[in-house]
Simulated assay, not measured.
Amino acid sequence: MKVRARAPGKIILSGEHAVVHGSTAVAASINLYSVASLDLSSDDDGMLKLELKDTELEFLWPTGRIREVLPGFDCPSPSIPKSCSTESYKSIASLLEEQNIPEAKITLASGVSTFIWLYTAIHGYKPGKVTIYSELPLGAGLGSSAAFCVSLCGALLALSNCCALDYGQQGWVTMKESELDLVNKWAFEGEKIIHGRPSGIDNTVSTYGNLIQFRSGELTRLKSNLPLKMLITNTQVGRNTKALVAGVSERTLRHPDIMASVFGAVDSISKELSTVLQTPVADDIAITEQEDKLEELMEMNQGLLQCMGVSHVSIETVLRTTLKYKLKSKLTGAGGGGCVLTLLPTLLSSVVVDKVVAELEACGFQCLIAEIGGSGLDVCFENSSRN
């Protein structure tokens, strides 16, 4: 049996950094995906294979070797998400050492470790082949690792006894709510291997799609009624998220009253933004009115992020460039580089979009255009019966 699963990336529409200090934030899925293909072939060659297409890396492990290193999965329990212990992680590290990952790509090691854990914990020592490719740039704050985990878990669970799916159905299929809940829990275990202490926001957005409003650890799923398109500009400038978060905290200690007002304003922006997105729109005039409100909210949010000290010269370049075309932008995620969002109004000419993209790419930036708030995890079966 063969299955493909795709999971979207995410953007933070409002509230980054302020959410750490108790404000509301809003995240949304984007129609840029990580795709995992799983082939549980009837040809029992006793091997587990992983192909990472984007990085042109392939890995191969005898399933007997995995059994030696990770014993106890002869009868896996995919219905019960399982955390990777420190001891298991060390054992998996020994499997990676045998693969001789090139030094230039060593940052992928945590993702490969996550793959070994999730595959073995869900399917035990079955031979199989998994192929991964992604439309999401790595390390840009667009949820690439969560999309990897969700798509992988979706494919693995789709061919387990936990999902009652119609294997003969054509095209992309959405799992039931209970099945998505299970995928989300397993993906969170994968995120823990990659990030240590993830918030759970990225994998939740990737699993369910649409919008997530979050505050003080509580996640609320929302549904957008406004079709939105964004230009996402990847400045390709790396950033240290921990240092940026610490910098905002230090500024808060120096100016507690002022920063409290900043965080309060961000909270209000996030709440109003959620209201705007959920308001039904009847025609293009109504859409334009709502887009105008969103542009103002984005502009205000960006100003507050600048007050927090998390902008960057590359981000300011994007802001100036898009403003020349009367388009409003804001950073998304940690700041200090990373990605910038620019709202593309429904009635905006494609000629203008092409000009903006050309100018930004001339600065050395990567431009992606994405629809906001679409579906989450989908699966697609490639033949109608199990092998």
Rank of each mutant, 00 (worst) to 15 (best):
N210V: 03
H312K: 04
S134E: 01
L347C: 14
V19N: 00
L108C: 08
G338H: 03
G373N: 02
K293Y: 11
S151I: 03
I194S: 05
E189F: 07
P227F: 05
H123C: 04
M300D: 13
I193L: 07
K185S: 15
P198R: 08
V353G: 01
F59T: 07
S270R: 00
K271P: 05
C380L: 09
T321Q: 09
I116A: 10
R6N: 05
Y167N: 10
G217V: 06
Y119T: 09
K49H: 11
K126R: 14
V183P: 01
V276G: 05
L108K: 10
I193Q: 05
G238Y: 06
Q306H: 15
C363R: 11
Y325T: 02
Q170D: 15
G238T: 10
C307A: 14
E135Y: 00
E51D: 11
A362I: 07
L70R: 09
Y119D: 08
C339F: 01
G154H: 04
C339D: 04
S314V: 01
K53Q: 14
M298E: 05
G337C: 07
G15W: 00
E87Q: 12
I106C: 13
T120H: 06
E16V: 04
Q236M: 15
K330S: 02
I285P: 10
D54A: 10
D284V: 14
E191A: 06
G247L: 00
S268D: 11
M300A: 15
